[in-house]
Nucleic acid binder design. Sequence first.
DNA 1: CCAAAAGTGTTAGTGATACACCCATGT
DNA 2: ACATGGGTGTATCACTAACACTTTTGG
Lengths: 221, 221
Amino acid sequence: MKLSDFEQPSVTTDLVIFTIKENSLKVLLVKRNVEPFKDKWALPGGFVRIDESLEDSAKRELFEETGVKNVYLEQLYSFGNPKRDPRGRVITISYFALINSEKVKLKASTDVSEAKLFSVSKIPLLAFDHKEILEYAIKRLKWKFEYTTIAFSLLPKKFSLGELQKIYEIVFEKKIDKRNFRKKILSLGILKKESIKKDAPHRPPQLYSLKNKIGEIINIL
Amino acid sequence: MKLSDFEQPSVTTDLVIFTIKENSLKVLLVKRNVEPFKDKWALPGGFVRIDESLEDSAKRELFEETGVKNVYLEQLYSFGNPKRDPRGRVITISYFALINSEKVKLKASTDVSEAKLFSVSKIPLLAFDHKEILEYAIKRLKWKFEYTTIAFSLLPKKFSLGELQKIYEIVFEKKIDKRNFRKKILSLGILKKESIKKDAPHRPPQLYSLKNKIGEIINIL
DNA sequence: CCAAAAGTGTTAGTGATACACCCATGT
DNA sequence: ACATGGGTGTATCACTAACACTTTTGG
């Protein structure tokens, strides 16, 4: 039996890139300048090259769109409805990424006229089945925030508990009790005290850093 | 831009089919009778047809191997290391299924000389990267047992709490306190009392059924 | 002295765990 | 009568949730 005995689909990776900016959870979308769905917004993505792994493909596209590397990236789900792309059979492996908005340099790449961050509450019509992918990603994001430490990957090395709490409040769209939040985070035993921040326009906060190495995500179930 | 501008990989679905039999968690493996990995054990799977969805492909293969339909099936993860198949670029979308062993009729299909259930504690060397896929599936299975009601899909419509507990004990490989287990399950409020089982060789148990429709999995986080 | 965010404890309720004996049936 | 699995309650501990005031700084 040879591989060529079977019709071969095309395979892409698509990325749901989240960040927090201006007190809101944002996702990166690109405007397509080629058919199909020309001039429509879509998730960034592209074809998997024949000699790269799925994760490498996702990392490459992430870098092409945002200029960032070494950020939180995980495989989300694979979508393969035979009709999802009008050009023919295209299967996509979706990934989601979390990046610190300070580090991003948005670039429109080939096939794309514009790249922009959208609040997840104001998403335009999307190409292909990207609405479904995005909704799935948002669910997973919330879940991961609740049960792991991925939220920390949106912060600089040293951060205050207030900054951390703000991120949670934005993602869950609700106020959190400060005392309970601090108690819970500190009881995890994963933070190291750093210096006290200077030059705050109010009482300066205690800064913390992660004890384990950056990017190591732990489960707190 | 045309799809054919990109080299197209082959795409398969592979299945991790779990069941419980003889007080042990088992997984279905097939013995390959073609190259590569001829005469080696592997997860059942096959190429995705050009006009079927990923899930339909998994369902079709599940049916071909076991003769069962309408069982618990979920997408697991996609594996796409460029070297995972010596024949060339093959990306696989893995699925995991949970079936009641009473309903299974194992069939060796094309390319396969034998199909057999193996205890997860006694897995032979596997073809491709199937060991990795299986380990991932076992982790997910345990997680799902802990936080959802998938365990019920291994039972007949009417079952006793003892039968349910036994399944948990097999999957987690440890004894569970009977009183606490019953308290927790009953407090979920998802069970309906049925009749009392007759013809038990000991005190006959109260039978229960699920209030919601079969196959509906709920989260109990 | 005012504004703005940081920091701090206690109580009540809920869910998890540990634990041992009697019951109903078939043989 | 015995073997087998079915069935039951209580006490302790850990975690969660609700709740308000003082502190430190810059302007």
